[in-house]
């Protein structure tokens, strides 16, 4: 894996985590007692029922669970798109619960890269321009061309979304997400709309970003096979974390079959 992340003094990790984790790392996210209740009409939906979670710098986490397990809600809260009903989330020294809408926007702008199931590219912009959209507003960004090269689409740079396959569009979305050199890359079912072969190329792109740039990466999926490529697999069910596993060796994406 070749990651050499020095331990930071004062890291507020629990002793248990230090013991169970092979590497001692800085926790990027800290969440405690997260609950999230949606009210739809008269019905209350308990999406999260008390989640405690730490994400460490540079690690690759897969959040695994069936639909309705609360994994998207968790990701949205971590990404500053949603707020928990109770509990707290901290990104480094940012309290995400206390943050207002504008502060959350700044948080996303400065620290988070998103990859969505349906790519969400701007149809009127070419691949390069979609990436440039982000690099324009970020001070320390890559050149859009370099970001696109990372995902292996140098030759498709000037194509519009409608001229790209689903896998290519998702790789552009990844390039867009990483171009600002985010601290954390959050991927919501990135292969959900793709076939196996294409899905693998997309996962390879994500994996290589994590490996080469050291970006903390969280991928949510309902596909258990994908779990093999992660450092850590957190399984959710009915709004709770039900299992946590560590992979001693990360499987390369091209070995995955589903």
């Amino acid at each position: 894996m070749g990651k050499t992340n020095p331990r930071t003094e004062g890291m507020p990790a629990t002793s248990e985590e230090c013991r169970t984790h092979p590497h001692e790392r800085v926790p990027v996210f800290q969440a405690r007692g997260l609950t999230r209740v949606y009210r739809v009409g008269d019905i209350e939906i308990q999406a999260l029922r008390g989640i405690d979670l730490d994400l460490y710098s540079g690690e690759f986490v897969v959040l695994l669970g069936p639909s309705g397990s609360g994994k998207s809600t968790l990701l949205n809260i971590l990404g500053g798109l949603d707020a928990p009903t109770s509990g707290f989330v901290r990104f480094r020294d940012h309290d995400l619960v206390a943050a207002d809408e504008a502060a959350l926007t700044e948080f996303r702008r400065d620290h988070v890269g998103f990859v969505f199931q349906f790519y969400n590219l701007i149809p009127s912009l070419t691949a390069r321009e979609n990436v440039a959209l982000i690099t324009d507003i970020t001070p320390n960004a890559m050149r859009p061309e370099d970001a696109i090269r990372v995902v292996g689409l140098a030759d498709r740079m000037n194509h519009f979304p409608a001229q790209l396959s689903g896998g290519e569009q998702q790789r552009v979305a990844i390039a867009r997400a990483i171009a600002k050199r985010p601290d954390v890359l959050l991927c919501d079912e990135p292969t959900g709309a793709l076939d196996v072969t294409t899905g693998v190329t997309v996962l390879e792109a994500i994996e290589s970003v994590n490996r080469e740039l050291g970006t903390t990466t969280a991928v949510i999926t309902h596909n258990a096979v994908i779990a093999g490529i992660a450092d850590r697999v957190i399984s959710l069910s009915d709004g709770r974390i039900v299992r946590e596993e560590h992979n001693a060796i990360r499987k390369p994406p091209r070995e995955l079959v589903w």
Binding site: A102, V112, L133, I134, I137
Partner: peptide, 14 residues
């Protein structure tokens, strides 16, 4: 709306 919301999500200010 979708494009604009996407931009909001990825960090564009209102």
């Amino acid at each position: 709306g979708r494009d604009l919301a996407t931009l909001r999500v990825i960090g564009f200010r209102r």
